[in-house]
Amino acid sequence: MNPIASIGRASLGLLRAIGQVTLFAWRCVLAIISPPWYLRQIGRQLLSIGYFSLPVVGLTAVFTGAALALNIYTGGARFNAESFVPNIVGIGITRELGPVLASLMLAGRVSAAIAAEIGAMKVTEQIDALRTLSTNPFNYLYAPRIIAALIAVPLLVLIADIIGVFGGFAVATQSLGFNGPLYVKNTIDFITGWDVASGLIKAAVFGFIIALMGCYHGHNSGRGAQGVGRATTNAVVSAAILIFAANYMLTSLFV
C-alpha cells in the first residue's frame, strides 16, 4: 500500500468522474436545445416533479419558517432586537433556506425517483430498446426531466418562500406577541425583489442538478437490483453535495 499511489488513484478517479458528468451534462444541454422535443413527456414530468412535490416542500417550509422565527427572537432578545424577526425570517427564507431546504428535499424525492426509474429501464434493456426504435434517450428521457425540473423547482421554491414566511408569521403572532398587519407590512417593506429573484435563480440551478444527477446515475446504473439501489443512493448524495457547493458559489456571487 503506497499512500502516494492511492492518493493518485483517488484523484484520477475523481477527475474521471467530473469529466464524465460534464460530458453527460453537455449532451443533456444539447438535447434540451435541439429537436425533437417530447412535450407529452415534459408534461408528465412537470406533474410528477412539480405537483406531487408540493406537500413535501410545503411542510418543510412551514416548519423551517416557524423555527427560524423562534431562534431569531431568542437571539435578537440578547441585544433588544426582537423586532427584526419579520425582516430576518424574510431574508433567511427567500435567499437561503427556501431554495436550499426545498431543493434538498427534492434531491431526496426527485433525484432518487429519476435514478431508480432510469436505472430500472437500463437493467431491463428499455434504454437499449429506445435506441433500436430510433429514439435518443437524451431527447426522450433526460431532456424532459431536466426541463421540467428547471421550471418546477423555482415555482416550488416560490411557494416555499411564501409558506416559510407564513410559518414565521404564525409563530410570531400566535406565541411571540407580534401584531399581524404590522408583521406583514414589515416583511413586504423589507424584502427586495432581488432577495426573491436570487433565490429563484439558485432554485433553477439546483433543479438542474437534481434532475441531472438522477439521470446520470440512472444511465450509469450497474446491473441487477443492487446496481439500481446504488445508483439511487449515489444520485441523492451527489445531488445534495452539489447543491451545497453550488449554493456557496452562487451566494458569494450574489451578495
Partner: peptide, 8 residues
C-alpha cells in the same frame, strides 16, 4: 429483446 424490454 431477451426480457421483452417493454416500456412499462
Amino acid at each position: 429483446f431477451q426480457g421483452g424490454a417493454l416500456f412499462d
